[in-house]
Amino acid sequence: MAGARGGGLIGAVVDRLIPGDEHWPPGGSTAAVRFVEQAVADGGEQGAAVAAVLQGVSGLAARRGGLFAWLPEPVRDAVLGDVEAQPGWSSGFRMLYELACEGYYTDPLVEAVIRERTGFDAARPLTGVPLEPFDERLLDRVRRLPPSYRPVPR
């Protein structure tokens, strides 16, 4: 599936954090981009850390030849790996990844793929599903066991 490589730095980064394949959409074409953009726009501790990471990505990409989005995929992955490994950026990189996942896994487009590929139906936690009542005959063996709790001296 095509991603959002032309859609700016955040889209290009998210495309490599959560790449697409024949089943899954790339992160850059999902709500993952909006989640990251919103966090950066909101500022605060998280937004500042993520913004610093994105700035770091741009800087390292420039040293490797240009805009991050225009670099070959292996080079982009190497840039992200270098950023992740930097002690000053590692926690911000984790925040960036978590934001991307939050947006990705709540995108209805992705939820449909989740249902298809894993059987997990995101609608069920919101609507429920009928289940058979518990059959208490399953307890029969245990019921016949001797008491096992400990007597307490007075």
Binding site: R16, L17, I18, P19, D21, H23, W24, D77, L80, Y97, E98, A100, C101, E102, Y104, Y105, T106, E111, I114, R117, T118, G119, F120, A122, P125
Partner: peptide, 27 residues
């Protein structure tokens, strides 16, 4: 776990992401 928590606990960023998620989610 739900998909998001499964991804954050088990799936690395990058090429192996979906493979890890499909292995763990709902399994």
């Amino acid at each position: 776990f739900n998909p998001l928590d499964t991804a954050l606990q088990t799936a690395p960023w990058g090429a192996g992401h979906h493979r890890a998620l499909e292995k763990h989610l709902n399994h």
